[in-house]
Amino acid sequence: MLRFLFRRILMMIPVLLGVSFVVFFMSYFTPGDPAVMILGDMATQEDIQMMHEQLKLDEPFLVQYVNYVKNIVTKGDFGTSYTTKQPVLDELLVRFPNTFKLAGLSVILSVIIGITVGIVSATRQYSILDNVATAISFIGVSMPNFWQGMMLIIVFSVWLGWLPPSGFSTPMHWILPAVTIGTSSAAQIMRMTRSSMLEVIRQDYIRTARAKGQSERIVIWRHALKNALIPIITVVGLSFGRLLGGAVLTESIFSIAGIGKLMVDAINMRNYPLVQGGVLFIAIVMSVVNLIVDVLYAYVDPRIRTQFTTNSIRKKIRLGEVGDE
């Protein structure tokens, strides 16, 4: 298992190098001079020239890229934001807790709702309950987040005055944004849980469990759910990863200082170091989430676990560490 983890972490390196190169390449060749953006339209030619030298913008592309990667690897330095003059990493780390909290809350909410409703739907297929849940989930999937967010603000903040419309400081502030994002991913998780469970509860081993005299509740929650979990974990992992990259629209509507909003602002300002750092950061987060998902697969399904161990055994045999038996 440790070997597997180590290998998976090594595999992240080429991915991240690729991402950094593509992002660096794209921002380098995007029209628009960062020096002009920083100094404003009124800057003189000399000022701009000086700024170019200061930011080392005149060096060849590859030199700039290699320096960039070198700084990250050796010093953990992602560059300096043009606008605030703060290190990019600090800017990202200041915003990340908000994004993480929002993503975490939304995912917890959507997992609780999605899995419960999905299971009930599957065990009572085509009942009224199932049909209602299906209808609501379709509404949940098709409702755009920004619209849903605004509706929630209108109802709960403007009309009822129960919850604050913007900000992210107290738990009261967390509710509306988390519900906005959570409901739409809950709908996805619910659909996935339902179809996955429907497949599993028709399997022979479920009948075996019933034939043992096991109660229906345990048959569903212990025997069936664990077998149905793999596709559910995939969906949850994907939506968690996506949310950690920042929920741009939701963050904007609720004025949450998160990664998504930061990125959009950075792109508008041509704040290249921040854009590059941000994308790289999101790529790292996404890779870590994927790694966690892979580990969860192995935890849930012993057949996948065996693959890991047999792979490493095979390698040992090749290396002559284990004698043939």
Binding site: Q203, D204, Y205, R207, T208, A209, R210, A211, K212, G213, Q214, H223, K226, N227, V300, D301, P302, R303
Partner: peptide, 19 residues
């Protein structure tokens, strides 16, 4: 079920819970 009367199913490949 499983106590007084128990059953062996046709296909052993699928009769056991894989996880």
């Amino acid at each position: 079920r499983g106590n007084k009367i128990s059953m062996i199913f046709q296909d052993p490949m699928t009769a056991l819970n894989p996880v």
